[in-house]
């Protein structure tokens, strides 16, 4: 998928994560988290898997995590990507999200 414009998903509430994506020539991932010491690597792995599954190859992905579970992180990343590609109202590839 292609990130066409800046988009955001999620909140800064406890147990949530806010994901902001922007167009960029290279793929880069920035993670800050209230549970970085224990779950930083796991958050990174979830983000990388999700981006790979959606075939995102370019863009800046910023995750501000407030202790979200993996399922929440995944959902926020997916929502932000689909919004950035103007596909969040229609055109979600549900089979890829499983």
């Amino acid at each position: 998928m292609q990130i066409k414009h800046e988009a955001i998903a999620g909140t800064l509430e406890s147990s949530d994560a806010q994901v902001t994506v922007r167009p960029a020539p290279e793929l880069s991932l920035h993670i800050s988290s209230s549970v970085l010491n224990q779950y930083g690597r796991q958050i990174k792995a979830v983000a990388e898997q999700t981006l790979k599954r959606l075939a995102v190859e370019r863009g800046t992905i910023e995750i501000v995590d407030k202790g979200a579970l993996d399922c929440t992180l995944k959902a926020r990343i997916e929502a932000a990507i689909y919004r950035s590609a103007d596909q969040s109202a229609a055109g979600i590839a549900w089979e890829v999200l499983a």
Binding site: V35, N37, Q38, Y39, G40, Q42, L69, D70
Partner: peptide
């Protein structure tokens, strides 16, 4: 099971 196994602090 709910939150994942935490990595030990360094």
């Amino acid at each position: 099971a709910l939150v994942g196994t935490p990595a030990p602090l360094e």
